[in-house]
């Protein structure tokens, strides 16, 4: 299993999200390889869920397409097992608690270990409910990655102190999706996190352009892009590998250009 910290070893990290099985698991494999070839430092693989309450329309629809194409948790594990021999960056899952709960925590995390999944992000599992998975995940070497939001305030210290892998800083109120402007005072939020943790901080929700990557990269250790990638895939599934390769290059270049 690749240590998540390695994603932050080559300058500011570009973290890319794809929904597994949209439009097919075979296609997802090629997208992940293209993103990594273009310079992505860590890949978040979304296990689709019927009711993803933290997602905007773009990822909601990707989840629907992925489920319609017959994607199951087991089939995602099989895809990841094929991928692990072909990419050399850490892979983490992003999904909702119910598919994991239903699979059974020990069985799920054991398969994570077998398929080289380094971490797990669950948007509907806040700090107070982390006990659900924390000890099981850690015992299989999987980092439970927690989120910090613009409304977290006094909770930031508590969350950050116990953080594993990296800290997912949510840039904005609301759900995932591209935003022209991010109005949250990210620098205040990030310094608050850094007072309690030396884990890397990556910012997601609304991030898509190299300009945003450059400005956020000055404060954070990395940026996370989901909806923009998923909409590129949705618009042109066949042409997406080339576009994703170029996009990852442009994002990584922007992040490396920060002095």
């Amino acid at each position: 299993m690749i240590d998540i910290a390695r994603a932050f070893d080559h300058g500011k990290a570009f973290i890319a999200f794809v929904t597994a099985g949209d439009p097919s698991l075979e296609a997802t494999e090629t997208y992940v390889k293209a993103l990594v070839a273009g310079g992505a430092d860590l890949i978040e693989i979304g296990i689709p869920f019927s009711d993803p309450i933290a997602e905007g329309p773009v990822i909601q629809q990707a989840d629907q397409r992925a489920l319609a194409s017959g994607t199951t948790v087991d089939r995602v594990f099989e895809m990841v097992a094929r991928l692990q021999t072909q990419v050399d960056v850490p892979l983490v899952f992003l999904t909702y608690l119910n598919p994991v709960f239903h699979y059974g925590y020990p069985a799920f995390f054991q398969r994570c270990r077998e398929s080289d999944i380094s971490g797990l992000i669950i948007p509907d599992l806040p700090f107070e409910e982390q006990a659900e998975i924390r000890s099981t995940a850690l015992s299989f070497g999987v980092a439970p990655i927690t989120m910090v939001a613009p409304t977290s305030d006094d909770r930031i210290a508590r969350i950050a102190t116990q953080a594993e892998g990296f800290i997912y800083a949510v840039s904005s109120l609301g759900v995932t999706g591209e935003r022209r402007q991010i109005t949250t005072d990210l620098s205040a939020m990030i310094s608050q996190i850094r007072r309690s943790s030396d884990r890397p901080v990556a910012v997601g929700f609304g991030v898509h352009s190299p300009e945003q990557a450059r400005s956020i990269g000055r404060m954070a250790d990395g940026v996370i892009v989901g909806s923009h990638i998923v909409s590129m895939i949705g618009a042109d599934p066949a042409g997406a590998p080339d576009q994703l390769f170029e996009y990852a290059q442009s994002m990584k270049q922007a992040l490396l250009s920060i002095d």
Partner: peptide, 13 residues
Amino acid sequence: GGQYIPETLMNEL
């Protein structure tokens, strides 16, 4: 029961 909800809503709850 419990509170299985995005972090953004926790302080509000």
